[in-house]
């Protein structure tokens, strides 16, 4: 998947301006400063203004380059290789995060590993199952048993 870098930069510029508007609106209710005190809204607003200026400059540079039809404006791309795999990994990671607590580490981790190892082209199911089982056990032993960092038990009565 590839997107023109110019489009991304222009979008980032507009996002920065939108962020400035959001900061100004959200900080309307912040308390006013007492004498010589830096108000709660001052610092975020200064930063948001600077962010909008820098973001706007990035976007403007791209717009000007696009109008002049420079080489950089037409040939630079943001390239994401294997986008379906990246999105599938993201979805698996979100599900892993969501179910880590309710189902427990020892249930969701092998499931996540089975899926992602297969997704990333490991062909042998024996290898996949072995890696999933050994890695899950290894991380559990290191965190939960050796370091005393409790991992979620979930459905398993441990």
């Amino acid at each position: 998947m590839r997107v023109r870098t110019a489009f991304v930069d222009i979008a980032v510029g507009f996002a920065a301006i939108a962020l400035l508007v959001a900061v100004v609106v959200l900080s309307e209710r912040f308390p006013l400063p007492h004498r010589f005190q830096l108000g709660a809204a001052v610092f975020p607003r200064i930063v948001a203004v600077l962010l909008a200026l820098v973001g706007g400059s990035i976007a403007l540079t791209r717009i000007v380059a696009g109008l002049r039809k420079t080489t950089a404006a037409t040939t630079e791309y943001v390239v994401i290789e294997s986008p379906r795999h990246v999105l599938a990994a993201l979805a698996a990671l979100i599900l892993y995060g969501m179910f880590l607590r309710p189902l427990g580490f020892l249930i969701v981790t092998p499931m996540f590993l089975l899926f992602t190892l297969r997704l990333l082209g490991v062909r042998s199911w024996i290898v996949i199952v072995l890696i999933a089982a050994l890695s899950t056990a290894g991380i559990w032993i290191v965190f939960d048993m050796l370091l005393g960092v409790p991992l979620p038990n979930g459905l398993l009565p441990l």
Binding site: A89, L93, F112, L113, T116, L120, V122, S135, F143
Partner: peptide, 16 residues
């Protein structure tokens, strides 16, 4: 392709 899923797991477990 074996290391990458393990990095995901250690990262998530670490932040949790």
């Amino acid at each position: 392709n074996v290391i990458t899923p393990l990095i995901f797991i250690i990262a998530i477990v670490g932040s949790y």
